[in-house]
């Protein structure tokens, strides 16, 4: 069986791992740099080309185009952050794939146990889960899904996706 889907490996994003209380993060970073905190778990908020993903208890990922990495690094000041918060630049730790097409959800379901129906996983949903046995970050995008795995599993995941499309 073949799927009506396609995938592409995306260029690296600027990505920062934020941990701590919302109030402490806002106090350190400043509210104007953040698109606002998502109200619910496993949801994202986007504004001005920046996405803030609520991926765990007191845990967020701040993402933007790689062109903005220096700007964000200057605003977040990871190495000077107070003890109440943790800010780590992780841009080069993830390999991201965009899976699109009519059967994108079916293709994702080969390796991902998440309920991907729109009712359970709406447009602003983002969550860590597993994909082909590896920890992965899954989000919706136009026409499909984006899946990020650890960089070292990027080639393996690309190989799995290629075989799944045959």
């Amino acid at each position: 069986m073949s799927y009506d889907a396609a995938f592409a490996r995306l260029p690296v994003n600027a990505c920062f791992d934020l941990k701590g209380a919302e109030s402490a993060l806002v106090e350190w970073i400043g509210a104007e740099m953040l698109p606002g905190f998502p109200a619910d778990a496993n949801r994202c908020r986007k504004a001005n080309g920046v996405s803030l993903d609520h991926v765990g208890p007191r845990h967020w990922l701040l993402q933007a185009d790689i062109d903005r990495e220096d700007e964000l690094n200057g605003a977040l000041r990871p190495h000077e952050a107070p003890a109440e918060v943790s800010i780590v630049r992780i841009s080069d730790t993830m390999a991201t794939f965009r899976i699109t097409g009519t059967d994108a959800a079916h293709m994702l379901a080969i390796g991902c146990p998440l309920d991907l129906h729109e009712a359970a996983f709406p447009e602003d949903a983002v969550s860590f889960t597993e994909f082909f046995g590896q920890k992965a970050l899954v989000r919706r995008c136009v026409g499909g899904f984006e899946v990020s795995v650890e960089q070292s599993f990027g080639d393996m995941t690309e190989d799995y996706l290629t075989r799944a499309l045959r």
């Binding site: 208890p57 845990h59 969550s127 889960t129």
Partner: peptide, 12 residues
């Protein structure tokens, strides 16, 4: 009564 770790999810 058991402990479980959401290691591939939110880490809780």
């Amino acid at each position: 009564h058991e402990h479980w770790w959401h290691v591939k999810g939110c880490g809780a």
